[in-house]
Design a protein around this nucleic acid. Sequence first.
DNA 1: ATATATTTTCAATAAGTTTTGAAAATTCAA
DNA 2: TTGAATTTTCAAAACTTATTGAAAATATAT
Lengths: 168, 168
Amino acid sequence: MKLSAAKAQFISSWGAFGTHWGINRTMAQIHALLLISPDPITQDDIMEQLSISRGNVNMNTRDLIDWGLVERVLIPGERKEFFLAEKDIWKVSTQIIKERKKRELDPMLKLLGQLEQIEGDKKNKEVKQFTDTIVGIRKFGGQADKVLDVMIKADESWVLGSLLKFFK
Amino acid sequence: MKLSAAKAQFISSWGAFGTHWGINRTMAQIHALLLISPDPITQDDIMEQLSISRGNVNMNTRDLIDWGLVERVLIPGERKEFFLAEKDIWKVSTQIIKERKKRELDPMLKLLGQLEQIEGDKKNKEVKQFTDTIVGIRKFGGQADKVLDVMIKADESWVLGSLLKFFK
DNA sequence: ATATATTTTCAATAAGTTTTGAAAATTCAA
DNA sequence: TTGAATTTTCAAAACTTATTGAAAATATAT
C-alpha cells in the first residue's frame, strides 16, 4: 500500500472511530492528520488535506487544544500559526482519560451521591431497587475513578507492565 | 428528595451521560428506567414513563437486548411482553466492554495491522512518522485488548478486590 | 377460523449537530 | 498609523440521526 492511500485510510477510520466515542468526526480526523505529520502544519494545510472550511478547522483545532492533545507552535519568520500534536500514545490516552473523567465521571459521581438519600420507606420495593441501583453504580464508579487516577499519574511501562503481569 | 424526582433526575442524567459514549439518549434512558424497576415492565409502561412512541421503545429495547443488557420475560397469564434489565453493575460493565471491544477495538486493530506495511523509503520523514504512529497505536491497543479480555473473563469479587488491594 | 391484542417495520418528519463562508476582529510589518 | 495577512466568530445551510405513527405482521384467545 502506498503512503498516500494508507494516510487517507487512517484518517477516515480514525474519524469514524471517534464518532463512537462522543468526538466529532472532523476533530478526530484533524487529530489523525496531526498525529502522522512529522512537522507542525498550518490551518491552510489542514483545510487542503481534509477539504474542509477554514471555520471548521479553526473550531476543531481549538477543541483539540482544549483537550490538551495539540499545541500551537510559532515558527520564527513565519506569519501563520502552526499546529503540532502530542505523538506519545500513552500521553494522549492519559490526557483523554483525565479530561473525560473531569467532564463526565466526576459530575456523575457527584449526582449519584445526591440521589442516594431519598425520602420514603426503605422496605418499599421501588425505593429499595432505586437505592440499590444508585449505590451500585456509585461504588463501581468510585472504584473506576481510583484506578483511572493511578493510571493518569503513573508511567506507561509501570502500569501496563504491572497490570499485565498481574492479570496473566 | 422524593423518589419520583430522584428517578426523573437519574433517567435524565443517565441519558445525557450515554450520549458521551456513543449510545443514544433514549436507549440510555430506557436502560436507566429498567435498572431502577424492581419488576419487569412492558412497552406501554416505558412509553408512558418516558413519553415516547411505541416504535421508539421497540427499536431501543431491541438494541438493549442486542447489547445483552436487557431480556424479554414472559409472565404467565399475561399477553404482553415484559422487559427486565441485568442489575449487577459489574456484569453490565463487562457486557458493554465485551460488545464495544468486538464492534470497535478489534476492527481498528485489524486495520492498523494492515496499515503497518507501506511501500516507501523508511528514512523518509513522512513514512517514518506514519509508521511510528500506527505501530504506537497498535501496540497500545493490543495491550488494552489483553487487559480487557482478562477483565471480561474474570470474576467480579476477585478482580475488583485484587485491583483495589493492588492500587491502594 | 375469526377477532382482538400486541409487536414490528419503515417512510416521513422532526430534532440535533456539523459545516460553511463571509464579515469582523486581530496581528504584525513597514 | 495604515494596510495586508491571518484568525475568529456565528448565522444560515447542509447533513446526520432520532422519533413518530400508522400500516403490516404476528401472536393468542375464543
